[in-house]
Amino acid sequence: MIRGIQVLGVLVIAYLMFQTLLQWRRGNYGVRKTVLWLSLWIVVTILFAFPSVTLLALPILTMQDAMLTVVVMGLIIAYVLVYETYQQATRAERKLAELAQNIAIHNYLEKARGDPDDKDEER
């Protein structure tokens, strides 16, 4: 029997697939990134649509319910994605800081070039 959560899960993932393709069309994602995300969405769709697939993994994961396994695995993937996003945000913040610092120093040097009094003495 198909459960409501399966339908909802597949619909949400279909939307995410659409968003991924849209990002690719707009040129925001390269081929590699698009394939990576689509692969992830396809795997999650299979897990939602056919939870029995996870029966194969149940003894290894020592879980008893296929749907519960899908949910738990989804949570684990979500944690990984959140962490990945955090790392990317940290990197972006660092790059932004470097950029703003370089612009500040560049502007100072430009100004100092025009105003010799502002320049420092010999190195």
């Binding site: 800081a97 703003a100 500040a104 120093i105 502007n107 100072y108 040097l109 420092d120 190195r123």
Partner: peptide
């Protein structure tokens, strides 16, 4: 004073790194 301006607020640590970069650049 000579003013060096960050376009956006980055925090005191970033300001100190800018200061250190300038000190090294100016041979202080």
């Amino acid at each position: 004073a000579t003013v060096i301006r960050h376009l956006v607020n980055l925090g005191g640590g970033a300001a100190i790194r800018t200061a250190f970069a300038l000190a090294l650049l100016n041979g202080a």
